[in-house]
């Protein structure tokens, strides 16, 4: 690729941003990394393109795949010197999932998160099942039951619709 200084550099950056914008989450491929809110920035200096991502959960095993996917997709478009950096601050919040991402989740039968709780002081104990205003992403019924606060990936809870009887995933608020 050409790495001349001047306007061409910015064109490259714009091109890189477009490539990066298409990379999807390995666990929820209906979402791009940008829609999920884990993509925190794309920048470059004279030699290296730097992409910054943040983990959704500390133990998220998809981070390595995201890094690989970013590097490979960019390499396919001629960006050879790519560095993927991790950002831990600010911590990821489900509030960062874009409107487009929320629609994509619903279109694929996954319930999108409500507003994340604010945890500035001590987190209050909650011994009752968490109350969420949800509707079934398949039939739209508000008659839903929480099966478990933990699901197939770190970021999801499991629900069951008592209307259509189908189980569905809900992306948790954090």
């Amino acid at each position: 690729m050409s790495l001349d200084v001047g306007p061409a550099v910015d064109l490259d950056l714009e091109r890189a941003r477009r490539v990066v914008a298409e990379v999807t989450d390995p666990e929820m491929p209906m979402l791009t990394l940008a829609d999920l809110g884990v993509l925190r920035g794309v920048a470059h200096d004279a030699e290296t393109l730097t992409v910054t991502i943040t983990p959704t959960y500390s133990g998220c095993p998809a981070m390595a795949t995201m890094r690989d996917d970013l590097v490979h997709r960019l390499a396919d478009h001629g960006f050879d010197r790519v560095e993927v950096r991790v950002s831990l601050t600010p911590a990821w919040s489900s509030d960062w999932i874009s409107e487009r991402g929320r629609r994509a989740l619903r279109d694929h039968g996954i319930s999108a998160p409500g507003p994340a709780p604010r945890h500035d002081g001590p987190v209050p104990l909650n011994l009752m099942p968490r109350r969420r205003e949800l509707t079934c992403p398949r039939c739209g019924s508000a008659d839903v039951q929480l099966s478990s606060e933990f699901g197939a990936t770190a970021c999801k809870a499991m629900y069951r619709c008592t209307g259509c009887l189908e189980p569905f995933d809900h992306v948790k608020e954090i």
């Binding site: 983990p55 959960y57 500390s58 831990l88 601050t89 600010p90 911590a91 990821w92 945890h119 987190v123 104990l125 909650n126 011994l127 009752m128 099942p129 968490r130 606060e149 933990f150 948790k172 954090i174």
Partner: peptide, 16 residues
């Protein structure tokens, strides 16, 4: 900061 969000779920699960 990240851990607080996670462990809050753990504690409520155990508490219930």
């Amino acid at each position: 900061t990240k851990g607080v969000k996670e462990v809050a779920y753990h504690r409520d699960y155990a508490g219930r």
